[in-house]
Amino acid sequence: MRYKKADNELLEADLTPMIDMTFQLIAFFMLIINFTEAEQDQRIQLPKSELARPPEQPFEVALTIQLMKDSKTDQELIIYGGEVMPLANLQRVLAREREYLTRTKRSPADATIIIRADGRAKTGVVQQIIETCQEVGFEQFALRAQQEEAG
């Protein structure tokens, strides 16, 4: 029995559609990637609100204080700049921020404190955070909530 010999020519797959798709995927991911993870800690379950809308224009100076509820110890902990700390340390950190603002010829009153607090956290602790900020000189606050679709 005789077998046909295969041709010696190389078989070339057409890679163009695959590369096109891959570049489109890369472009998509590059556009939507979010590098502000430090300010959106995933351990925090934000309360939901249908009226919470993203700010129309970004805050001129914004400091984000996050309050998480530690499920193991049932205690509230502050997250500031990616660092977990007790409430007692917040004043020292905020005083440092005030010094920086003063050096850059701005006032703490111009800055907005964004509070990202867990929906299970105690309101009293949130109020303590606000009081601590007020003692340092901050007076504008933004209580952050997760946007809930209407209906």
């Binding site: 964004i114 990202r116 606050f141």
Partner: peptide
Amino acid sequence: AVEGDFNIKMPR
């Protein structure tokens, strides 16, 4: 998720 703010002005 999309997040939004409630602004509160509270001087001391």
